[in-house]
């Protein structure tokens, strides 16, 4: 597929936009693809909605807006309310099942990732929930290569935090791999 549209949505502070930027950067600078990212957020510093739309393509992106995403990464219930209705019926739904316990109806491909609890309990690093989701996105879609994303993660996270983030990515990757088997 030459053009893949991804929506990553959550609440302010969950790192949805950061995850989108990493996805786009991995596509462009390591996978030699094209990507276009737009974003929106409410004005609250915490707790308001935050969303980013990333188009990854093997060719230059003409129309840069996401209208009917192929993939929705939802980090909060609010994200489902806002964005699930435009997801393609055949689209891939990746949800943080700690935040969204009920399975969204009407979608064939739903991947459930307990990213919030793993980041808090297992990794003791709540800020890595978005990277867990990114790992799941990578395994379930292959939209961007694993190596590219890992390189961007190492480049983007604060010094000394690369190991825990790579671990988070790996956990997400494995959870999704299990579910698509």
């Amino acid at each position: 597929m030459s053009r893949v549209e991804v929506t990553i949505a959550g609440l302010g502070g969950q790192g949805s936009i950061t995850a989108g930027v990493m996805l786009g950067e991995a596509a462009v600078t390591y996978d030699n693809k094209y990507a276009a990212l737009t974003q929106a957020y409410s004005s609250e510093q915490r707790g308001g909605f935050a969303a980013t739309w990333v188009i990854v393509s093997t060719e230059p992106v003409l129309f840069p807006r996401v209208t009917h995403p192929d993939i929705l990464v939802a980090q909060a219930r609010d994200s489902i309310t806002r964005f699930a209705n435009v997801l393609k019926p055949t689209g891939l739904h990746i949800i943080d099942c700690d935040m969204i316990p009920e399975t969204p109806e009407g979608f064939a491909n739903v991947i459930k990732v307990p990213a919030t609890s793993i980041s808090r309990n297992q990794l003791q690093a709540p800020v890595t929930a978005n990277v867990i989701m990114l790992g799941a996105l990578c395994a379930a879609s292959g939209v961007v290569g694993r190596k590219a994303l890992e390189q961007v993660i190492v480049k983007s996270v604060p010094k000394g935090k690369d190991a825990v983030n790579l671990q988070a990515f790996d956990i997400g990757f494995k959870i999704a791999s299990e579910q698509i088997k």
Partner: peptide
């Protein structure tokens, strides 16, 4: 604003 804030290659 759309162009200023969007990210691209």
């Amino acid at each position: 604003g759309f162009i200023g804030h969007m990210r691209e290659r």
